[in-house]
Simulated assay, not measured.
Amino acid sequence: MNHVVFFLVPGVHLLDLAGPAQVFSTAADFGHPWTLGYVAERPEVRTAQGLPLVAGLTWPELGPDDLIVVPGWRAAGEATPAIGPGPLRMLREHHARGGTVASVCAGADALGRAGLLDGRRCTTHHDVQDELARRHPRAIVVPDVLFTTDDRVVTSAGIASGIDLALHLVATRHGPAVAAQVAREMVVYARRNGHEPQTSAMLRHRAHLDDTVHRAQNLIDSRFDRALPLAVLASAAGVSERTLTRLFTRATGLTPLRYQQTLRLERAEHLISHGATVDSAARSVGFEDPRMLRRLRARTA
Rank of each mutant, 00 (worst) to 15 (best):
A157L: 04
G158R: 13
I159G: 00
A160P: 02
A160W: 01
S161T: 14
S161R: 07
D164K: 06
D164E: 04
L165H: 04
A166Q: 09
L167Q: 06
L169W: 06
V170L: 02
V170H: 10
V170K: 06
T172S: 10
G175N: 02
P176C: 01
P176V: 04
A177L: 04
V178M: 04
V178P: 07
A179H: 07
A183Q: 11
A183R: 13
A183E: 06
R184P: 01
R184V: 09
M186P: 03
M186C: 03
V187S: 10
V188R: 11
V188Q: 12
Y189G: 08
Y189R: 14
A190H: 14
A190P: 07
R191W: 13
R192D: 11
R192S: 06
H195P: 04
E196L: 08
P197M: 10
P197V: 11
S200H: 12
A201R: 14
L203Y: 11
H205N: 12
A207W: 15
A207M: 08
H208M: 05
H208G: 09
D211Q: 12
D211V: 04
T212G: 11
H214T: 14
H214V: 09
A216R: 09
Q217A: 02
L219E: 03
L219T: 09
I220S: 01
I220D: 01
I220M: 00
S222R: 14
R223E: 06
F224K: 07
D225F: 05
D225W: 12
R226A: 06
R226W: 00
R226D: 10
A227E: 05
A234G: 07
A236V: 09
A237I: 03
G238C: 09
G238N: 03
G238Q: 12
E241L: 00
E241C: 05
R242A: 14
T243A: 13
L244E: 09
R246T: 13
R246I: 00
